[in-house]
């Protein structure tokens, strides 16, 4: 286990030919990463497994399309992101109203200066339990916000890449990121102030 070299030409040849015995090795190597990405973008465990299934099913339908020019992981993730983008488009036709906009507006006075400046949560952001707090706070984001935030911050995609993949404008991406980050920041601040 774990010793399979996925760049090995023989292995790739078997995969390309649709050798089903090579499949468990491939699934074992890539599935956890696909599920982690799915969960990171706010899909449930079940939805993430569904997505992963569709990735491998699509791959097995036309294994010969994989030319071996990119890493097999990259290739499968390419299929994965296309599927995510499809689901994303079904789910979010328009930007819905989000109360975080009013929360942010209330933080500034008429001149645009801070009325309620950000609390000092720097210590918290470096604390050990911050991972847990963030996971908890991420649940408060809408799915489109999570997808946008994940692609930007975790995958570190650039703006044009995200907009193209999700089929949204730069302005809409800006709104999603603005809301995602402020929701998270607010949530971390609140949880921290409660503790402190």
């Amino acid at each position: 286990m774990g010793a399979t070299n996925f760049s090995n030409p023989d292995f790739l040849e078997r995969v390309k030919k649709g050798d089903r015995a090579a499949l468990p090795l491939l699934v074992e190597a890539v599935l956890p990463q696909l599920l982690r990405a799915g969960r990171g973008m706010g899909f449930s465990q079940e939805e993430s497994e569904d997505l992963a299934h569709s990735v491998f099913a699509a791959f097995l339908e036309k294994p010969e399309q994989f030319q071996g020019r990119s890493h097999i992981r990259t290739y499968l993730f390419g299929i994965f992101y296309n599927l995510v983008a499809e689901r994303y488009r079904e789910k979010s036709k328009a930007l819905e109203h989000d109360p975080i906009d009013e929360v942010m507006e209330s933080k500034f006075d008429a001149h645009g200066s801070w009325r309620q400046p950000p609390a000092d949560i720097e210590g918290q952001l470096h604390a050990k339990e911050i991972g847990q707090i963030i996971q908890e706070c991420l649940k408060g984001l809408s799915q489109p916000q999570r997808v946008a935030f994940y692609l930007r911050e975790h995958e570190e995609w650039e703006t044009p890449e995200i907009c193209k993949k999700l089929g949204i404008t730069v302005t809409n991406l800006g709104v999603l990121l603005f809301r995602a980050r402020n929701r998270l920041r607010e949530c971390v601040e609140k949880k921290g102030l409660k503790k402190g």
Partner: peptide, 14 residues
């Protein structure tokens, strides 16, 4: 703080 949120996300994963 906004920048730190991103780096935390990259570090912790799931």
């Amino acid at each position: 703080q906004i920048r730190a949120l991103g780096s935390v996300l990259r570090e912790v994963g799931d």
